[in-house]
Design a protein around this nucleic acid. Structure first.
Lengths: 176, 176
DNA sequence: CACATTCTCTAGCGATCGCTATAGAATGAG
DNA sequence: CTCATTCTATAGCGATCGCTAGAGAATGTG
């Protein structure tokens, strides 16, 4: 929650221990150091609030995958019981040179998601469900960008209805 | 450049003075403090590399405004002579409670741009150039989100061609 | 050249950072 | 109850943060 709200570097050990109700030695005994704790938090996020990408990939068509991903993101990014937006997208945006590896770790998650979308679109093109002229990487980059922009919008105060309307417009760009 | 690349809090006075080739007292004499220096940097950015929004608003139609904004952003975010992405979108994403006002300052710029887009679309609807069913705020939020997502994509390594293709897809969602 | 004034830079202020040594409390065995 | 062991918490390490006082160099004036 703290990493989610404030990001990696802006979250201090002091605020983390207070939020967890423990003392620094307990934190270090459990996680090793701040860097490893962050990776554990990201992994946990990816398996819970951030699993909408993986869940959407269960849809039978590429179009269903993308639509579901957008819908779930709109709901998730604006849920009231946690910070707005996406931890993977926003938690390591402002990093010093010393924390470049943290930014790189999140970038890996983002690229994996984008690649998964591209693969699903390419599969539907190969299966003949989508026109052969469909540019799978371009579409995947577009929808990845929309989802990332939705995260920024959520952080800036957009409601779920706002984001669902963004999803509506984005889906209008789907190849005929 | 430093604020642009690393964001507000992750940029130290030490790195700033080194980058400027001056010493701390000179910096403080010229700008007051780090907070004011950042505001000056943002204003300067808005008038130079970040003026694509204002420039696009010179287009005669809402559609022209949005297309120009997307095209200029794609070029600007990937230019080789400065950090990728947009300072206004990304330089105050990870902030501690003490720097909430910095995040708020950039949020103001973003909301102003989004509002300007919405106004231009609404004007075209009122003029009959766009269908009366057009949802101006929804379209504006969508294109604002796309531009913000393009910034993230640029930071993640996307080329200008990649971003122009994102713009192509995004423009396909424009109301018929 | 002598002196006053301005500018520049070094050194260091208090505070906080990530992290840990060590003292103290709680727990289990005999 | 006694003692050994484990766990917890406090206090503080060196480093860096944003920021500034005061020493030193440079400049302009007579």
């Amino acid at each position: 929650m703290e990493f989610w709200r404030h990001g990696y570097e802006a979250t201090s050990i002091s605020t983390l221990t207070k939020a967890m109700g423990i003392n620094p030695p307990s934190l270090y005994a459990a996680f090793g150091d701040k860097r490893k704790l962050f990776s554990a938090a990201v992994q946990r996020y990816a398996e819970t609030h951030g699993d909408y990408g993986a869940r959407a990939l269960g849809q039978p068509t590429a179009r269903g995958v993308v639509e579901t991903m957008l819908r779930l993101a709109a709901t998730e990014y604006t849920a009231a019981d946690h910070p707005p937006g996406c931890l993977v997208i926003d938690a390591a945006t402002n990093t010093s040179d010393a924390s470049q590896d943290v930014a790189e770790e999140l970038r890996g998650y983002r690229e994996d998601t984008k690649q998964a979308i591209a693969n699903r679109i390419a599969a539907d093109v190969a299966a003949g469900t989508l026109p052969p002229t469909t540019d799978a990487p371009a579409l995947a980059t577009f929808y990845a960008a929309v989802i990332q922009g939705m995260s920024t919008q959520a952080r800036d105060g957009a409601s779920e209805a706002d984001l669902q309307r963004v999803a509506d417009v984005a889906l209008a760009a789907w190849p005929a």
